[in-house]
Amino acid sequence: MASIDIRNLRKKFGDLEVIPGFSLHAEDREFISLLGPSGCGKSTILRIVAGLEELTSGDVVIAGRNVTALEPKDRDIAMVFQNYALYPHKSVFENLAYGLRIRKRPEDEIRKRVTEVSELLQIQQLLQRRPAQLSGGQQQRVAMGRAIMREPAAFLFDEPLSNLDAKLRNHMRVEIRQLQQRLGITTLYVTHDQVEAMTMSDRIVVLNHGMIEQIGKPLEIYETPASIFVATFIGSPAMNLVRVRTDGNALVFPSGDRLSVERQLQGDVVLGIRPERIKLSASKSENSLPFEIVLVEELGAQKIIHGRIGATEMTVAFPEDVPLPTNGASVSLPGNYLHFFDPESGKRLA
């Protein structure tokens, strides 16, 4: 059982409080993404778990063992860095072998393990090369290989794919996930890319300014974002957000258009709806709103339509194979896909 427990973690750099308080429990074999914008403290948390950064207060428990005071080498973890951090003067073979060499394992065991790992990652033919002679993707594989050599209790990934081109990134995403499932190693995965977090994780931790905005399964976070921050961070194109006034059972748009909803709300609220949930049609139906198309982006599988309800900008994702209404479009916003947030706190209204 290699669970990871982070308890009441706080971190200050001088006077700057980067992590005001962070707790997380990762189950054995779980893949958890730490997702947030750049500078929100993801790397700091990961480096604290690795032991590369000291914490101000709190505890890190890995596999039931409190490792807070231990050196990285005694924590039984492996880490993959954003820039791969390979040993530049060592061959791929020696890069992989170094961890075992330090542990004074016999030569034939090292050879056997390097062979296994390099076959698993399909880098057998690269073993004699140096990092400088490898492409970005190959370096990435070697870095992963080095991480799995020792069969650690936990994997820590710090934006491992962000230096790769888009195509390779999609490919490696799948590979990392498969590898992690095959090896069954508990993983913390730091990323600022919501697609990575959505596609790879068992659970996602959405971070903002070092604080947890929401923890949940990818679909939970997509379907019930806990705050405006999460709502805009997850999903592409981003969720539409409109500040509306409530009037009984109706929402009043800035344009004066009214939309009746089933819920009783009070005062001003922020209405959210995902572009892919909006229905766009030529005919005006009951409870639909007039929609003026401004710009169409063709993506192949779908069109992204930018338009306006009155003065309110709204983005709609529209299936490619359906022809666009030519004049007088209108949109309907299905009630079960509407999200409501408090305009002051940004929190989801229960």
Binding site: K73, A78, F81, A85, L86, R150
Partner: peptide, 10 residues
């Protein structure tokens, strides 16, 4: 970062 990688490597 290679030093940190080595630290993690043990």
């Amino acid at each position: 970062s290679p030093f940190e990688a080595a630290q993690v490597d043990g």
